[in-house]
């Protein structure tokens, strides 16, 4: 980029003066970034809106030749294979229709995720306040132990969890899943909240304490109202961790009563029943809730994360 040496240039206006080539490069990078991030979604959506015969065409259809919502209707209503779906014998036997229940498992995912968020924000903000503001023996040590616990691979936690959850009779229950997700999500939630709480000026808090508020009241009335971005960020982390979890529910759920969408999605990918159009429709169903949340809350999210990134 242009290395102009004019001494009095203001950095804020620098980019306007840089060379055209530099600007074009920056736009090209941003364009590539958007293409890289979004085109896979476009392709999933595009494929989910086509008839099966159009989905498997060579070369691919860049836009649906004929838009259909049939795939969505099918995965939601669980009708037997529709006549409108061209059945190509050449592709080999994919006649068995997945028996996946998309809507019930989305609901399962949602209920568990909300439970995980509530527990995380409640326990997380209490613990984070303790780590950020209170002095007690072994504080640093405990904090790093909490963070370090995330290093253990999930694969090695599955068996003990299975035995633990089974022994307290929570196998195949919402509560069992919520309990399982807490140790996965809580460390990150505490980390985000501690970083943000530390940016809240102590003077505000001291004023409340002089007025006679105890620590709980200070947290509830002073810190939390000032920490909305961090609470939302932490809540997002917890929600996404829960919604996106796959290996644990694969082992810990056995019926449609609690089975989340990530596990149900497998039915549409399994080799013997693949309809690519329906597979993509199911994929959309799996991502629509987390993506919507990320879009709605991104502003808070970025502010909530800023504290952590900047202040450490």
């Amino acid at each position: 980029m242009a290395a102009t040496s004019a001494p009095d240039v203001q950095m804020a206006k620098w980019y306007r003066r840089s060379t055209i080539a530099g600007r074009i490069m920056i736009y090209a990078i941003v364009a590539f970034m958007l293409f890289y991030a979004l085109s896979p979604f476009y392709w999933m959506l595009n494929s989910s809106l086509q008839l099966e015969k159009d989905v498997v065409s060579v070369p691919p259809n860049w836009v649906p030749p004929q838009v259909t919502l049939n795939n969505y209707a099918e995965i939601v209503l669980r009708k037997p294979a529709d006549v409108s779906v061209a059945f190509d014998k050449k592709m080999g036997g994919y006649s068995t229709f997945p028996t996946a229940d998309v809507l019930p498992s989305m609901w399962n995912s949602f209920v568990v995720a909300v439970g995980v968020v509530v527990v995380n924000v409640l326990l997380g903000s209490l613990a984070a306040y303790g780590f950020a503001r209170l002095r007690f023996a072994g504080k640093q040590y405990l904090f790093y132990t909490v963070l370090a616990s995330r290093i253990v691979p999930e694969v090695s936690l599955i068996v003990p969890f299975y035995l633990l959850i089974r022994s307290i009779g929570l196998l195949d229950t919402y509560l069992g899943l919520i309990v399982t997700y807490i140790p996965i999500s809580l460390p990150l939630v505490i980390f985000v909240l501690v970083a943000y709480f530390e940016t809240v000026p102590r003077e505000i808090e001291n004023a409340a304490r002089i007025d006679g508020c105890n620590r709980f009241q200070t947290l509830w009335r002073v810190i939390l109202p000032l920490s909305t971005p961090a609470i939302i960020t932490a809540g997002m982390f917890a929600f996404l961790t829960s919604w996106n979890e796959f290996l644990f529910p694969l082992v810990l759920t056995q019926t449609m009563e609690t089975r989340p969408i990530t596990v149900t999605l497998l039915d549409f990918v399994s080799e013997f029943s693949v309809s690519y159009a329906r597979m993509n429709a199911a994929g959309v169903a799996c991502v629509v809730v987390p993506v919507a949340l990320a879009l709605i809350f991104q502003r808070y999210f970025i502010r909530g994360l800023t504290a952590g990134a900047v202040k450490g």
Partner: peptide, 22 residues
């Protein structure tokens, strides 16, 4: 463009796998 860039981050790995497999 920032919220748009953030979208893949929100997606479950399973769905990520499905998208790329396709």
């Amino acid at each position: 463009s920032i919220p748009l860039v953030l979208i893949p981050w929100a997606v479950p790995y399973v769905a990520n796998g499905l998208i790329w497999e396709w």
